[in-house]
Design a protein around this nucleic acid. Structure first.
Lengths: 219, 219
DNA sequence: TATTTTAGTGAACGGTGTTTACTTTCTGAA
DNA sequence: TTCAGAAAGTAAACACCGTTCACTAAAATA
């Protein structure tokens, strides 16, 4: 599709860029923003600190790329579950659970992805913006919205539900559990109360609660 | 209760400590951790940077006190709603909504309260630990757990629900919405989709979803 | 080949949290 | 009242940080 008739120079450049990114990824995954310094990174790949700035405008831009790649991973996994043919309610629940499970595998990435004040949180292009490409985060949101719309249509969820609104609410709930686990490593066990449930089971329990909130009540 | 027969020296010391804290609070509320530097704080109260360290062991310890005071505010507000005599389901929903609404009034405080890896997240004292005092955060959690236990008892919530577990799930959902609003200032409006609902209404909608997840289904 | 672009660097700027050695001020007991 | 010891406060330094600038060396282009 995209014709990549890159010159040798360009290919060499991309290679070095990739080396920087992969060194950064390694440090970042282990120690987060705190541990990742330009100077340390430069030493790691045997360049001067200033050299990094020939490849990235700033530390933030570098980290942004790590985050985007990470959300690509989340998106792939959620998509895989969403395209399954298991019963709808179970499938919806597993999507929520999968988001959390993959996300918490790289706690620093996830936390960083939401740390910046006003990252790119678009959800649709405005009119016909030319080169617009939705962020992976935005794409993941759209999968969620589509799934909820499906539930409303097939009668699994309450008919008065607005899929866009509900998707935001569900997303907030997923986000919350993920952040809890990220920031409180022992979660759901709180200090001095015996853990009564494994983390995986708790994630499924939570996902179940979230989906239940959307379902029909016959009251 | 606590006999405060403080010497003049001690009172003077506490006064200065309080002055430091209040200057820190002012800066922190406006600009967060990034904006609050020891040097700037020192200049603000006309002391040398090193002087701060006679009153606080580290910047982190100083900020910890700001966070605890902040959670005291949340706790008070949630308690006030919990002690109301409005119908149970409505009351439960309002507790959740209030937590979020108060929390987002000081975004930097809330974000910081969960930023540190392993803060104090106890929920009960181990056996008879002598001078143990539950953090305000922990106390707020206990209010939530009590309320859910009440719901299970009076039949509003499903009988198989474990209040401790459910409280963690609900807490995660509240936390998630709060974090979303904190990190994405325009939430629930996402870029390039028209905001279809005010923030207050969305918080109530979310709280409602969360409580619904606990309710009986007659399926 | 001559010229322009690019890759890479060392040194500096202005900032950070924290420690250390030092002086001054206050306090509590003989 | 005097005097030892504690406490309050400080200037200067340490070891970092992200970023910029002036510069050289190498490669690409014309």
């Amino acid at each position: 599709m995209t014709a990549t008739v890159s010159s040798p120079a360009e290919r060499r450049r991309n290679k070095i860029r990739a080396r920087i990114l992969s060194a950064a990824e390694r440090v970042f995954a282990r120690e987060g923003v705190e541990g990742l310094s330009i100077r340390r990174l430069a030493e790691n790949i045997d360049y001067s600190p200033a050299a990094i700035y020939k490849y990235f405008k700033s530390k933030d831009e570098l980290i942004d790329e790590l985050k985007e790649t990470f959300f690509e991973l989340i998106l792939e996994n959620v998509h895989r579950i969403a395209d399954t043919s298991t019963p709808f309610n179970e499938r919806a629940r597993d999507c929520v659970a999968t988001y959390v499970m993959i996300a918490v595998e790289k706690p620093y990435h996830y936390a960083a992805a939401f740390a910046g004040e006003a990252a790119d949180n678009r959800v649709a292009p405005v009119d016909d913006e030319p080169g617009f490409e939705l962020s992976k985060k935005g794409q993941a949101f759209n999968v969620l919205r589509g799934m909820i719309a499906e539930g409303v249509e097939n009668g699994a969820f309450r008919s008065e539900i607005d899929p866009s609104l509900a998707a935001k609410s569900v997303w907030a709930s997923m986000h919350g559990l993920t952040m809890m686990i990220v920031h409180i490593p022992s979660f759901p066990a709180l200090k001095a109360d015996q853990a009564t449930m494994s983390r995986e089971d708790f994630i499924l329990f939570h996902a179940d609660q979230v989906i239940r909130g959307l379902e029909m009540h016959n009251e």
